[in-house]
Each structure stands twice: as C-alpha cells, then as structure tokens.
C-alpha cells in the first residue's frame, strides 16, 4: 500500500473514530430489561493454591505435592466454548473465548447472556482454544496477540501460561510451563444442578493451582523446569495437561 492511500485510510479511520466516540457518549448505558424467558449466568473465577488466593511474585512460597517450594509471577489460561446442559440433555452453547489472569481481577468474570430458563445439570468448557480458532492467527479481544498468549508460528495459542521461581537447594531459579497445542486441549464437564428463571446467577469457579502439579502425575519442578510443549516435550507437557483437567471446580451456583 502506498503512503498516500495509507493517509487516506488514516483520515477515514480518524473520522470513524470521532464518529464512534461521539456516538459512544450518547449511548444509553442502561441494559435492556431482561426478557422474562431468559437469565444471565456469570462465571466468576478465583485462583488459589489449596484455598489461599494466589499472590503475584509472593516472597513466601507455596509447596506442591512433590515438595517443591515455588511462587508465581504469571498465571493465565483460556476458558472457551462454554456449554450448559439442561436436565433433559439439551444443550445451550456459547462461542466465548476468555483469558483468565490470576492477577487481574477484571479478567476473572465471564458473563453468559440470554440463558434460557430451565433446570440444568452441568457446565462444560474447554481449557484452551478449539483447533479452528487456535490456528487462525492473532484475533480480537482476548485472542489478540497483545495478551502474550500467542506462539509465533502455526502452533497457535498457549492454553495456559505458568511462570515463576522455585527453590533449588540453597538457590532460587525460574521455571516456565507453556501448555498448548491441539492435542492438549482439555474439554471439561462439571456436573452441578442449577436453575435459571429470568434472573442473574453466579457460578463460583475455583481454580486450584496445586492440582496442576498432581492427579494423576505428581510433577517435580526440578525434573523439568522449562516446558514449552515442543514436540520433544510431549510426555511432560501431556502429564501437566492431564493434571489440568481437574484444576477447576464449580463451588456453587447461586
């Protein structure tokens, strides 16, 4: 594209922006009154280590099942493709893509609008990104490259990024676990009964980082402190991905 065209586009962009800004100001922020046949379900994630909320870069370390003392500087993961199952077995699907950041409160809510009234028996979701979206390059919103969750080439997104430091004898050194690739996508179903009747409900989702290091495989950070899901790391990445499957539980819906 030539400079001149670029300029023209810029002018259009600028115009559009001004327009959208002014329309923004006039926008009525009050939500439409709820249609009575539908409700809202908000998934709220808290990120813990065995019941204690995680602290970024904490100077006191957590101890995992293998006895490693470690802390966390980065902990983020994707929740996508949420599905709600009614007791009659019918399903309501939401094509959502949400990046949960343990240290950014504003990221920890995923709101499902227009949930049909009814009695439900389960919530299902992916920890990660389905293969279509995983291989479509940088996208918008939580799938944008600025989240730092995109691997550079065809490998797609990191489904989970965990980084920090651990005690290695007397010294302290870093670890990093970047879990991704289609084969390590976790599809999770949590059975829980709840009823939506034209109201707003909250699902309290608890992610326990302790589970990342155990069940089924007790993982010793010292055995491998750097896993990026490269082809030669499939065994270890697979163990951690399997541990992730029961990392999140639905505490209650009310």
């Amino acid at each position: 594209m030539h400079k001149k065209q670029f300029k023209i586009i810029f002018t259009i962009l600028a115009g559009a922006m001004l327009f959208s800004i002014s329309s923004c100001n006039k926008e009525d922020t009050k939500p439409d009154p709820l249609p009575k046949t539908k409700g809202i379900l908000t998934l709220q994630f808290s990120n813990t280590f065995d019941g204690t909320l995680l602290t970024k870069n904490a100077a006191t370390f957590y101890t995992n099942a293998a006895g490693n003392e470690f802390n966390v500087s980065t902990f983020r993961y994707y929740i996508s493709n949420v599905e709600l199952t009614k007791i009659d077995g019918s399903k309501v699907y939401y094509p959502v893509y949400k990046l949960i950041d343990a240290f950014e409160e504003s990221s920890q809510k995923l709101t499902l609008l227009e949930v049909p009234n009814g009695d439900y028996k389960a919530i299902s979701y992916f920890i990660g990104i389905d293969s279509t979206r995983n291989h479509s390059g940088p996208q918008e919103g939580d799938l944008s490259a600025t989240t730092g969750m995109l691997w550079t080439w065809a490998s797609g997104y990191l489904f989970l990024k965990l980084e920090g430091f651990y005690k290695d004898g007397a010294s302290q050194t870093s670890y990093r676990y970047h879990i991704g690739t289609d084969e390590f996508l976790n599809k999770v179903t949590s059975p829980i009964s709840y009823s939506i009747q034209g109201t707003q409900k909250n699902a309290f989702m608890v992610c326990n980082l302790a589970e990342f290091f155990k069940n089924p495989t007790t993982f010793d950070i010292k055995s491998d402190d750097d896993i990026q899901s490269f082809p030669n790391e499939k065994k270890e990445a697979g163990e951690l991905a399997a541990n992730m499957a029961d990392m999140i539980t639905v505490l209650k819906i009310e």
Binding site: I9, I12, L13, A16, M17, F19, S20, I21, S23, C24, N25, E27, E140, G141
Partner: peptide
C-alpha cells in the same frame, strides 16, 4: 478499522 472502533467505543471512553 470498523472492529477497531467498536472496541474503541468500549474502551476509550472519551
């Protein structure tokens, strides 16, 4: 650009 401005509409509350 259009998608960008939908976003700016949300985020840049000028």
């Amino acid at each position: 650009a259009t998608t960008l401005f939908l976003y700016s509409c949300k985020q840049v509350d000028q």
